[in-house]
Amino acid sequence: MRYKFAAENRVGKYLSYAIGEILLVVIGILIALQVNNWNEERKQHVAFKRTLEALRQDLNYNIYLANSDIIDAYNKDSIITMALNNKITRDMYRENPDFRNAINSRYFYPVQDNLSAALSFENHIPNRYMSIVPQLKLLSAQFDRWQDSYSISFETVINYNDWLTDRFSWYSRNDSLAVESNIDYLLNDPVYLNKLSFFRNNYLNNTIWNVTILRSLSAGILAKLEQIEKSEKESDINALFDQLRLKPYNHISDTTGFTTDQQVQFRTGSLIYNATNQTITVFRIIDFRRNYPRTLNPGDFYTPITNGGDLVEVVYENQDSQFYQTVIDGYLLIE
C-alpha cells in the first residue's frame, strides 16, 4: 500500500499512514514497558512481604534475647547497689559466685540481616507499609549505637580482668584460699567500689540502656505492623506486648502526694504507643510540672528514658488528660 500511495504521489496520505504506523509501534512499546514495570513492581512487593515476615521473626527473636540480658542486668544492678551500701556479707559472697563476679558483661547476638534487606526495598515498598520506614531506620541506627556501647563495655571488663591478673595472684586460682582472698578484696578494697560504680555507669547505664531501646523499638514496629495488617477489631496490641514480656504502665487516678520511686539505678528505655486516631502530647512530670513534651500522631511511638516509677501525663486533643506511672520493661498503649 505504501508503494501505491507513493506511486500515485499521494504524499500527504502516505505520511499520515507512516506516522500512524510509527505511533502504533511506540504505543505498543510503551504498553509493553508499563506491563513489564507492573510485573516488576508486583515481584518487588512479593519479595518485600516475604522479607517483612522474616523480619517479624527476627524482631521477636531479638526481643527474646534482649529480655534475657536485661534480666541479668537487673540482677547486677541489685548486687552493685548492695555492695556499694555494704549490704553483702562474707557468707553471702561465699554462697553466691554471682556476687563475686558482678563486673562482667554479656553479649547477645541480635539478627540484623532482614532489617537491612527490608530497607533495601525502600523505593518499592507498598504504600500501606511506608509509615514503618522511619522506625526501621531508627532501629538500624540503634543497632550501631548498641554495638559502639558494647565495645566500650567489653574493653572495660577486659581491662579490669587484666588489672586483677597483674595485681592479685589469687585471681587465676579457684581454691578455697583464693576465694577467701577474693572476698577480702571485695569487702575491704575501696578501689573495687570505684570500679563497680564505673562499671554500672558504663555497662548498665549505656550498653543495657541501648539494649532496652532496641527492645522497645522492635516492639513498637511489631505493634505498627499489627495495626497495618489487621482491622481495629482483629488487632490486639496489648496481647502482643504481653507476649513480648512487657508490662503496662500503672494508671494514676490521683497524683496528690505522688513520689517517684525508682525501680533500678540505671536508665532504661520503655515504649509509649499512640493507637488512637488523634494527636496526643506526652509530658514527663517532674516536681508537679510538665517537662519534655512529645507529640505523637496516630500510629506513632517513642522510647522514653525511665528508671521506673516516673510520672507521665497524656494530653488529648480536647485537653483531657490521664496520668501514668512508668515501670521497668514497661509500655503505655494509648487507645
Rank of each mutant, 00 (worst) to 15 (best):
V327S: 07
Y302M: 02
V314A: 03
E313L: 02
V315A: 11
T295D: 11
N318L: 14
E313Y: 00
I272R: 02
R290I: 00
I280A: 09
F301C: 07
Q278W: 06
F283N: 05
I280W: 07
D320L: 13
F301I: 12
I286G: 01
I280N: 08
N277G: 14
P293G: 03
V327D: 10
T303R: 08
V327W: 10
N307P: 05
L271Q: 13
A275V: 08
V312Q: 05
T303N: 11
F323Y: 06
R294N: 09
N291P: 05
F283S: 06
T279F: 06
R290C: 00
V312Y: 04
N291W: 01
T306R: 08
V312K: 02
Y302L: 03
E317P: 05
Y302A: 01
D320E: 14
L271A: 13
Y273M: 12
S270Q: 15
D287T: 05
Q325C: 09
Y302I: 09
R294Y: 10
R290G: 00
N297F: 15
Y273H: 11
R290M: 01
S321H: 14
N307K: 14
F283G: 03
A275S: 15
V314W: 09
G269M: 07
T268D: 11
D287A: 02
Q322H: 15
N318T: 14
N277V: 10
T279R: 14
D300V: 11
P304M: 04
T303P: 01
D287I: 06
T295L: 11
S321R: 09
Y273Q: 13
L311D: 03
P293M: 09
L296T: 02
T279A: 10
D300E: 15
N307M: 12
Y324S: 04
R294F: 04
T276Y: 12
N318F: 12
I272Y: 07
P298E: 04
T279M: 11
Q278C: 10
L311M: 08
T303Y: 04
G309W: 07
F323V: 05
Q278F: 10
Y302Q: 01
E313I: 01
D287Y: 03
T268R: 14
R290A: 01
N318V: 13
G308K: 05
D310Y: 06
Y316D: 06
V282I: 09
D287P: 03
P304T: 00
R284L: 06
Y316E: 04
I286W: 00
N318S: 07
I285D: 00
Y292L: 01
N274V: 13
N291I: 01
G269H: 06
Y273W: 09
V314E: 02
Y324D: 03
E313D: 06
V312P: 08
F323M: 05
I286S: 01
Q325R: 07
V314G: 10
R284Q: 14
T306S: 14
P298G: 00
N297K: 13
F323P: 03
Q325S: 05
E313V: 00
T268W: 11
T279E: 11
D320A: 12
T326M: 14
V312G: 02
Y302S: 02
S321D: 09
I285Q: 00
V327T: 15
Q325V: 07
T303V: 13
V327K: 15
S270C: 09
R290Q: 14
D300P: 08
V315H: 01
R289Q: 13
I280E: 06
S270T: 15
P298D: 03
G309R: 06
Y273D: 05
R290K: 12
F301Y: 02
F288L: 09
T279W: 13
G269K: 02
T276K: 11
